[in-house]
Simulated scan of single mutants.
Amino acid sequence: MKKRIKLNTREKGVLLFEGIGAFLLFQIMNVFLISMIGKSDFIQNFQTNWHNLLADNLWKVMVVLVLQLILSYFWVITQYHRLELRQIKRILQQSATANLPKPIKVKVDHNLQDIIDSFNLLIDNMNRRSKEQEKSEKSKDELISNVSHDIRTPLTSVIGYLGLIESKNYNDLGQILKYTHIAYKKSLEMQNLVNSLFEFANVQHATSRLNMTKFDMAQMLDQLSADFELEANKRGMEIIVNSDPDKIMMQGDTEKLGRVFNNLIMNAFKYGKGATHIWLTAEQKEKEVVVTVANNGQSIPKDSLDHVFDRFYRVEDSRSKKTGGTGLGLAIAQSMVKLHGGTIAVTSDKDRTSFISHFPIV
């Protein structure tokens, strides 16, 4: 709640003194003006016949006094605003020296209030950017920590097995081939992580651009179903495509959108334990296209739903590579959806886990 600026006793005394002084100054000016227009005997007449003069010119005297009181009042108001400015200056100096300056919650003259409101807006923007920078720095630290963790494990294995070969600590060629095969698989894990990191950094970059083309979303989902049909059969799963209407024309970067749905389908393969079906559904509405990738596998715990799009987040308790994921697939998908001006969300219950994306038609 905004509070009016309060003056201390000294400042109130100064205002009162200046108001009385201004009024007395006007009286002196009256005498001076009268003497200037040839009525120098006014004071003498006033001393002897003051009651008659006041009776004959009462309304004139009252008008002059009222005008002088009004002028004195405006003089005091002007001085009050001057004191307000002085206090505001002091408050601004105090705010400028703080790490996170707080908005100035004071009520002043409407002209000064515009300045205060503008300064508060500046403070809000500065604080917001400061918090964003702090969050960004924290995010970078977490990124370095996660990358270091995910690279260290396979790199240790690569160095360990190649070290055995280098030190000739093997029995036969079969053992050498075993060591090199493990080192090769671990190298692929690191390559996959580095590629995902590069893709994530690229899509997060402010200058990342879209190669917009007109395409049929229903046809894209049909193509994705064909691409993953063999993998789905190996896992005992069926991919079902539904589109309403049968042809949905929209604009977007087909390469990046293909990557979005590729990641979502791979996510269903890796984490949809026990799933028998994957549904790819597209629905055209008035101004948007809603695309859903769903599976009927194991549900995502409620406490994990808010974090599935976080970098390096995995739903499983351990950070093992059992699923072969880098923890960046959904973060990349979310970033690419945002690039298209869309949104993506997840819902999960015992029957179905659904990733729902909303895209503007244009």
Rank of each mutant, 00 (worst) to 15 (best):
D172V: 08
M212L: 15
T276N: 09
H110I: 04
I344D: 00
M212Y: 12
K60G: 15
A201F: 10
F46Q: 02
D306I: 14
A226D: 11
K247E: 09
N262A: 09
D317M: 08
A98G: 03
N202P: 05
P245N: 09
D141N: 06
K322I: 11
D253N: 08
Q334N: 13
L188T: 04
L230W: 14
S243L: 02
Y313E: 05
S157W: 03
N233I: 02
R314N: 11
D222P: 00
M36Y: 13
F198A: 12
V315Q: 01
T207L: 05
D41G: 13
S187D: 08
V14F: 15
Q284Y: 00
R319A: 12
G19S: 14
L328D: 00
L100I: 15
I344G: 02
V64E: 14
I344N: 00
Y161W: 04
H307D: 08
M62W: 05
S208K: 10
E288W: 04
D349H: 07
T180G: 06
K135T: 10
I123K: 02
G160E: 05
L305S: 09
F309M: 12
I77K: 13
S320D: 13
D351N: 15
N45R: 07
V293H: 07
S225I: 02
S72M: 12
D172W: 00
G274H: 09
N233P: 01
